[in-house]
């Protein structure tokens, strides 16, 4: 399965190195973005797409420097607008494989409207949202995913706003692919990246990412070894929702219309919640699970086939041409009411 039919057959075999640009990477030492960059570069060869057919589009923020470091086509645009730029590009060039790189501020604050619409339209682009729950490039103000009460330079007595959950937001917008991964879990990140990139339509992937300067260890619950073992729920299609250490496995099951955590041993196999990526309602429930009451789901919450925006529009174009032939401006100019002056 190729993401966009972007010339898979002719692709030569690439290595990670082919996707590294000649630019010096300028993130802070220790930034989670390095791991993401590396994982993306490493995943690219497996897409089987000629690299000249790949485009990275970004907005503004630390994450948005990303295109400069990829040896593909790239466009570092303006704050929040990358999904809209990508939509125009995809409509003009449906043959290209397009990635949008954004962050929690770029994607969910200033660009929230565009993220909504790229998702509901199901434009064939892959959206990577680096979520570090803070504004890094502007030096440490709270972000739309910061927890309520967050003390930052702009909120010395704590932030008043409640955070938005990127996964619930995406699902609410009608996203056909929603996933979550972690910058410190390289293998999982690579796997999930490829799944998102291969999705036909908008592949939305939240990457929990560490800002070691302004919000260090915001995701420690899934970083610290013991905590990760206790709280991380790795989603796998067709497998039950089980998590926790081997000697204390727990299950997420449904009780009425509410999810509930129980000891895995306490329920019969038939009562387990089997993860089904095609079930949108189940994905919506999963998106809201969080510690301490629940585990933190990572992986693919949903992946559902649906026609893409560009497919629908191009089909209309084909139909218009097959019905009435290609446009001819000279004929158009003399169509309808005309009159001659001798």
């Amino acid at each position: 399965m190729s993401a966009s039919g972007a010339g898979a057959a002719e692709a030569r075999r690439y290595t990670k190195k082919d996707f590294e640009s000649d630019q010096d990477v300028r993130w802070c030492p220790g930034c989670g973005d390095y791991a993401i960059l590396s994982a993306v570069q490493k995943s690219m060869p497996d897409l089987d797409i000629p690299k000249e057919n790949i485009v990275f589009i970004s907005g503004i923020g630390c994450s948005s420097r990303f295109p400069y470091y990829m040896n593909t086509y790239g466009f570092h645009t303006i704050h929040g607008r990358a999904p809209a730029i990508a939509t125009g590009l995809k409509l003009a060039r449906p043959d290209l494989k397009i990635f949008v790189v954004t962050g929690d501020g770029d994607g969910l604050s200033i660009g929230g409207n565009h993220l909504l619409h790229v998702l509901r339209r199901n434009v064939g682009v892959t959206v990577l949202l680096f979520n570090n729950r803070i504004y890094g490039l502007t030096k440490g103000q709270y972000s739309p995913t910061s927890e309520q009460g967050k003390v930052t330079k702009s909120t010395p007595m704590g932030s008043a706003d409640r955070p938005v959950n990127p996964l619930s937001f995406a699902l609410g917008c009608g996203a056909t692919f929603v996933g979550r991964t972690i910058d410190r879990d390289i293998r999982h990140m690579e796997e999930t990246l490829k799944r998102a990139a291969h999705h036909k339509g908008t592949g939305f992937l939240e990457i929990l990412q560490n800002c070691n300067v302004y919000n260090d260890l915001a995701w420690n619950v899934v970083y610290e070894k013991e905590s990760k073992l206790q709280h991380e729920l790795k989603l796998e299609h067709g497998k039950p929702l089980l998590f926790g250490p081997p000697d204390d496995r727990k299950a997420v099951v449904m009780e009425g219309v509410m999810p509930k955590v129980v000891s895995a041993k306490s329920v019969p196999e038939s009562a387990l919640w089997i993860h089904d990526e095609t079930n949108l309602n189940a994905a919506k429930l999963l998106a809201d699970l969080w510690t301490p009451e629940f585990p933190i789901p990572v992986g693919v919450l949903t992946a559902r086939p649906a026609p893409t925006y560009e497919e629908v529009l191009l089909e209309q174009e084909r139909r218009a041409i097959s019905d009435r032939g290609p446009g001819d401006i000279a004929k158009l100019l003399v169509s309808g009411d005309t009159w001659k002056i001798e």
Binding site: Q23, E52, P67, T72, Y73, G74, H76
Partner: peptide
């Protein structure tokens, strides 16, 4: 061969 990056 003409892969390049531009921006604001």
């Amino acid at each position: 061969g003409l892969e390049h990056r531009i921006g604001g």
